[in-house]
Design a protein around this nucleic acid. Structure first.
Lengths: 211, 211
DNA sequence: GGTAGCTTGTGAATGATTTCACAAGCCCCT
DNA sequence: AGGGGCTTGTGAAATCATTCACAAGCTACC
């Protein structure tokens, strides 16, 4: 299979959300144009995105909403469930641990960890915060695939090293630090300050549109 | 000025972070190659990114760390401060209201709003949660430029309509909903579930690398 | 069964972004 | 003062992503 652009994967995730809404409203069939409209893209883009993975529609008719939901879930790897550990039980870590959107989509939070004894023992939406010294043992036992990092910047790299060594295959980093991971591990970063800075740039340069 | 790609702006924000670290360590000068190394990009990319905005280095020498910090801050619009309102004082809204990274970079949280009377009146890091009915009045009085939306998906669009009408020029959306804004308003969205789904795609297709 | 009216799937064309590669310029040392 | 060793800034080339445009195919209806 050819290399797939991140922008394509991001849009597929978006399409999936809309399709679920359309299904909830009882719509059984949808055209690429309709889907494009909700997602703010073009019908050609929708069809091209899907075409990387196969052929899911019927010419003249469009796509079956239910079928396409199934196909995209399969493409994104959501036909199975994934186990996630959250590292850092501060404000953001705690918020994510209790975020419904994860469970809804098959991401199960199997552990929340913190270094600070004050936070250890608290219960967040049914999961108890455990000391970070248990991380390695728990990763080997529960085999989570994904780690979400919500710790201060300086603590992030040592923790990534530990969890990747213990078997984590993907990391979502909310810590304000540039992380390095071994080959074969996928890394994504979300930086709140950067997002605001991109907005500030847009506000400072109204003649252009870096949106 | 030509149109600037979002990827360029995002990298500039990243460079700024590294430069601040280098400055804290007392380094006064830096080459594009060194900067590229910390940011996981290439020296040509660094130079090209900067070249859109002018010429900031000295051939043979590199860039003055302090000067380049100033120049990038100017480019991104961080030479001034920006006022931000946070809408929704749930878990994520509260976490963001107390996030140090914003203030550090000149983003001042001037108000936090919620619909729920139970949350109104609470104090988050010096800012009191106010009822969302005050939004319009406060926006006209305090003239914030940026709104950060942390409300349930279905509440998001009506709130965006209200705050853009009241004068907000940029919106950072954490709500799981596709928003529409009037022309001239900049919109960015961060969707936690999508980020995890991109990771899941990567895990499901190890032969490629949509990172 | 044939035609009209849609909509998909996809090569080709366009547009955007990244990488290459090198002339120009600066500092240091002799 | 001149040469060597770096490093920038930037057109040109290459790569990557999006948009165009149209043949192929399906349904409905007469």
């Amino acid at each position: 299979m050819k290399h797939i652009a991140e922008s394509t994967v991001r849009r597929l995730s978006l399409y999936l959300r809309f399709l679920e809404e359309f299904e909830a409203q009882g719509q059984t069939t949808i055209s690429s144009g309709e889907l494009a409209l909700s997602g703010g893209t073009t019908s050609a883009q929708v069809r091209k995105d899907l075409s990387f993975f196969g052929s899911f529609g019927k010419r003249g008719l469009g796509y079956g909403v239910r079928d396409l939901i199934g196909s995209i879930r399969q493409i994104l790897g959501l036909h199975r469930s994934w186990s996630v550990v959250i590292i850092g039980a501060g404000k953001i870590g705690a918020a994510l641990a209790q975020y419904r959107g994860f469970t809804q989509r098959g991401f199960n939070v199997v552990g929340v960890y913190d270094k600070d004894p004050v936070r250890v023992g608290a219960t967040l939406d049914g999961v108890t915060v455990r000391p970070d010294s248990e991380l390695e043992r728990d990763i080997q036992r529960l085999k989570p695939q994904i780690a979400v990092l919500c710790v201060p910047g300086e603590a992030a790299q040592p923790l990534v090293d530990r969890v990747t060594k213990a078997g984590i295959r993907a990391v979502l980093n909310f810590a304000p630090a540039q992380l390095h991971v071994p080959k074969g591990v996928t890394l994504r970063a979300v930086n709140m300050a950067t997002e605001l800075e991109i907005l500030a740039f847009g506000l400072s340069h109204p003649e252009e549109r870096a949106s």
